[in-house]
Simulated assay, not measured.
Amino acid sequence: MNAESFADYLKKQATINLFQEGKLSSGMAAAWLGIRRLAFLRLAFEAGAILLEDTADDLMRETALL
């Protein structure tokens, strides 16, 4: 693994972690990674993220940018 791909890996993992902690919206996370929101949600889901826990806060966070 070269330095650039390692940096990309770390950026992706940090972004997913911030999303999982509720500190970053999926839209902002996708923008940070330069990918579409749906692609980010797929990455986050594959990494074990719980996309919605059915709370009012989760709904508000996920629909805020629509």
Rank of each mutant, 00 (worst) to 15 (best):
R42G: 03
K11C: 08
Q20L: 00
E62D: 11
T15D: 06
A47K: 07
K11W: 03
L51K: 03
L65G: 03
Y9S: 10
W32S: 11
M60Q: 13
S25Q: 06
T63N: 07
I50P: 00
F45M: 07
I35A: 04
A44S: 13
I50M: 02
K23C: 06
G22N: 03
G22M: 02
L66M: 04
M1V: 05
G27D: 07
D8R: 11
E46M: 09
A31Q: 14
M28R: 15
Y9H: 12
G34E: 05
T63R: 07
G22S: 03
R37K: 14
R37N: 13
A31Y: 08
A49I: 11
M60E: 15
R42N: 14
E4T: 10
M28A: 15
D54G: 10
T55Q: 03
L52A: 13
L65A: 10
L18N: 08
R61I: 08
L38M: 12
A29Y: 06
L52Y: 03
R42V: 13
D58P: 09
A47W: 01
E62M: 09
Q13N: 07
T63F: 03
L41A: 06
L18Q: 10
L59T: 14
A44L: 08
R37I: 14
E21C: 03
A7V: 09
M1L: 05
T55R: 01
L33P: 14
E46Y: 01
A64I: 11
D8T: 10
D8M: 08
L65F: 12
K12E: 15
M28Q: 15
A14M: 13
L52W: 01
A64R: 12
Y9W: 01
A31V: 13
F6G: 01
I35K: 11
R36W: 06
G48P: 02
T63W: 04
K11G: 05
Y9C: 05
L66E: 09
E62A: 01
L43S: 11
G27P: 02
G34C: 07
D57R: 01
K23Y: 02
A3H: 05
Q13K: 08
L18G: 05
F6I: 14
E21H: 02
K12V: 15
S5H: 04
D57W: 05
N2L: 03
A3F: 05
L51C: 04
E53A: 15
T63Q: 05
A49R: 10
G48L: 02
E53K: 15
N17E: 08
L38C: 06
F19A: 08
A49P: 04
L66N: 06
G34F: 04
F45C: 07
R36A: 15
W32M: 14
L43I: 12
